[in-house]
Design a protein around this nucleic acid. Sequence first.
DNA 1: GAGAAAATATTTGTCTAACAACTTGGTATT
DNA 2: AATACCAAGTTGTTAGACAAATATTTTCTC
Lengths: 233, 233
Amino acid sequence: MSAGKIPTMSRTEIPSTIAMDIANQIRSGILVAGDKLPTEKHLSNQYSVSRTVVREAISRLKSDGLVVSRQGSGVFVSTNEMRNSFKIDNSDMSRSDVLALFELRQNIEVSGARLAAARHTSKDIKAIKQAQEAIILAKPWSEDEVRADLDFHYAIAFATQNSYYADFMAFLGSVLYENVKAARIESGDPLIKKVTVEEHERILQALLRRDPEAAGSAMMSHLQGAIARMAHE
Amino acid sequence: MSAGKIPTMSRTEIPSTIAMDIANQIRSGILVAGDKLPTEKHLSNQYSVSRTVVREAISRLKSDGLVVSRQGSGVFVSTNEMRNSFKIDNSDMSRSDVLALFELRQNIEVSGARLAAARHTSKDIKAIKQAQEAIILAKPWSEDEVRADLDFHYAIAFATQNSYYADFMAFLGSVLYENVKAARIESGDPLIKKVTVEEHERILQALLRRDPEAAGSAMMSHLQGAIARMAHE
DNA sequence: GAGAAAATATTTGTCTAACAACTTGGTATT
DNA sequence: AATACCAAGTTGTTAGACAAATATTTTCTC
């Protein structure tokens, strides 16, 4: 199977809008844990769609742990403890949203770097160095460069030996990818690559010395620079 | 609407298993970005279910941003950048998984406490104090006590003025809720409440002084104690 | 034969109807 | 009053149909 171009959605799907509508009712407190949703029949009347569409919407809510269904009885709003999905809608994020997400990412990465300094294996170092090489070799402002940059950060998160760190970092990277790319391209600063590589090198050296504090502060200043470059634009 | 008991799932739902199966194929690299999924008809034959069931499964994947469908063409695996859902399956977490999650939570809370010290409003302080009061008033090892404890931590995350911090903290709290409760009850330590309240008080005082470092280290030692209590059990 | 246009087939999106599986509440029986 | 039973309601699943959009093939034109 060849990996071709990924198409965009053709039409706005009805189940999606219904699911979001109900999810909002839960988030806003109109529906609280234990409440019974209207029956599928009722909902299909309410939204003027078929039961099939309603069921697809409810299926999405179930997959996020927002509701639980019981055959013969109904669909019920779950308790908070049952949720198993953390979602970020990156379609309409304001600039302040992006900065807030970067702030979260920054703090996770800094503590991640500290852990990585203490725990990394030779394999981890290899992966980190490889990403750094890829950045150097990549064409400035290219897709490859941005991806290699993310790989560098992911490799450090992976070196924490804590899979949740790595997974969540990968997730944040995914969500912020377009913004990172845009920021880097729009800046147009020819020095940006040089600075990035140097800062990465500082982090790498601290990791090799197994110096958690140095690794953390190197990561901190690196990301602070990145955020600053984004903010004053 | 009265909030009654939340029932558990009645039967294992077929769409759920199919969705997880395909999601695993994506995660493991059997299906990569751009690949076309088998047609709904093909999948319904493959799994020996109706097309409706297949569609509910795909609907879940779409809601997580794992695939994109295009009418008339097919369903395609998304790029990583399109994912918008971070999921944690808390049904079968090993003890080491729980500890790893706690580690992530710890580092987020520590940096969160630092931010909160710098940014909290009078409203935030009020909420934090209220949660602390609730802990004191709650019956030891009760549901209310655990919930009030989580509220305390959430209120601090909220005081960062960064909604992603608050949301993600709430999410981690949800996932870990049962484990926190179990750990607290199983420990049976009669001093646990006193220690908790005291440690919280230290955090609160540091916040009031707007001292980020003190708030961070107070939070750090608080959570380190909690993790230690869990680990050596 | 090449390219464009049209017809055909394929695929996802939605709807309807039906039955199965399960729960709930009421009724009748004892 | 307690139990057994029945009927209605609700979710789970299946089947078939058509609509809407895309992909493929055929036909036509030059």
